[in-house]
Amino acid sequence: MKILVCISQVPDTSTKVVLKDNSTTIENAGVSYIINPYDEWYALIRAIELKESGIASDVDLVTVGKANTEPVIRKALALGGDKAIRIDAESTDPYLTAVYIAEYAKSMDYDLILCGKESIDYNNGSVGSMLAELLDMDYIGFATEIKIEGNTAVVKREIEGGEETDSCKFPLVISCQKGVAEARIANMRGIMAARTRPLTVITPTVDDALTSILSYELPPAKAGVRLIDPADMDELVELLHAEAKVI
């Protein structure tokens, strides 16, 4: 059984967003980059667990990004995975990202494609679902548990107002969130091994982006907190009713 894990490079969660160039760009100087937490903690680690338990034969990693994403790919390889593919393009539009991954994956006979539920920078959560459409596969989103029984994935997933357990035959795409696996830290052996694992760079067939970001904006600063006497919660309730008009 062959697994492909989609990896995205994102700014560290502690990043404070700073705008530049007349608010058309987010400043990247001083920003440290990490593997998107959903891709790493859940999708990648679950794939590695399936390999360790002998269920998966191959675990490949794919990312869409320029050469500056390679340190993050090496970090992912240090956790596990047999080889990595970097598709040499800017990942700016979810459709383009999905098209590029699909172009690579369509001839590779992956049984299972795992991704995180969304990237923590653009929060679109749409590449997995698009990829399934482009590859004519089923898609299960927001998974919290993934088991494999023969050629079938048995997946617990979040639904509106609850959860359900689904089963679906390979091939399929699953987006992962908390519960799918426990985060782990790369050990020295993994870090050493990652240096020798193959990282292939491929050039995609250029397609048109369907969206573009014109500018950014920061949230307005709060006017300042109004402190309420902890002994007088009636006042708070009154303010929430009469001033904030939320109750």
Partner: peptide, 23 residues
């Protein structure tokens, strides 16, 4: 932009080659 929307809208967008805005 909810669980059902995310399962469907990106598929529809990919099929139609339609630009997508999430949220």
């Amino acid at each position: 932009n909810d669980i059902n929307g995310r399962a469907v809208a990106p598929r529809v967008a990919a099929k139609l080659k339609a630009g997508l805005v999430v949220g």
